[in-house]
Amino acid sequence: MPSKLIEKTMRVNRLPHIWCPGCGHGILMRDVAQAIENCGLDPDKVVIVSGIGCSSRAAGYMNYNTLHTTHGRAIAFATGVKLANPELTVIVITGDGDATAIGGNHLIHACRRNIDLTVVVFNNNIYGMTGGQYSPTTPHGEKGTTAPYGNIDYNFDIPKLAESAGATYTARGTAFHVPQMIKLIENGIKHHGFSLIEGLSVCPTYYGRKNKKGSAVDMYNWQKENCIDAAKAQKMSAEELEGKILTGEMSRCEKPEYTDMYMEIIRKCGGDK
């Protein structure tokens, strides 16, 4: 028997999931489910859209309307779902490669439109499903199977990327800091406009092993020690913040939302009659 939350929000007969021991994705998926619950949404009106990769297998486990699409295209599919029926709450679960490499164009343009989607990026800094190749968020200098001598690419800061592209809510949380992550997703869902929440995951199998990060527990300890809440960071010195990753709400503003503006066009054209 699973917990009440899992029983209500997951397709229990599909569990246990395929993710490796210690993978942060299971924690982040539970966070998304808890956030949906906290928002008090009718599960029949919630749509989860995902792409391809480890992260995107989440859709199959979650007990909502779920659309597991093609690699990189989740946000484009989600845009169609949301514009077709703005009454639906549309949440995209995607990965660092899915969202910012093959799907990078869809990400920035959805940000630009300020369409009311909530995008949760499960960022494990690597392509896990294909066996550990470097991704746009693999830190500079780190290794992947396709960066055997160290990654010479510079990595994306996903919330910053989204903010500069026009997202009206951006945030970063971690798999370790669960209550904060749940709250960030919850706020993203409640925000009327495009929200992006990066969830720093943990990939002990590929990223961890390739880069000698120790066990899964060691990697969560790393998150515990190196991820600092942005509010707390304001009281810290530059030296103290050296090499740290800031978490929490990164940006927020209000701007007319895309489907609202389109409904206004329909009204002007008399198409609502």
């Binding site: 295209r73 484009a76 599919f77 989600a78 845009t79 169609g80 779902v81 077709a84 029926n85």
Partner: peptide, 17 residues
């Protein structure tokens, strides 16, 4: 949409809806 792939993807999303 921002590109051809997104064009068909969004149309498919709308069809599912």
């Amino acid at each position: 949409m921002e590109d051809e792939i997104a064009g068909i993807a969004a149309a498919l999303g709308a069809s599912v809806a």
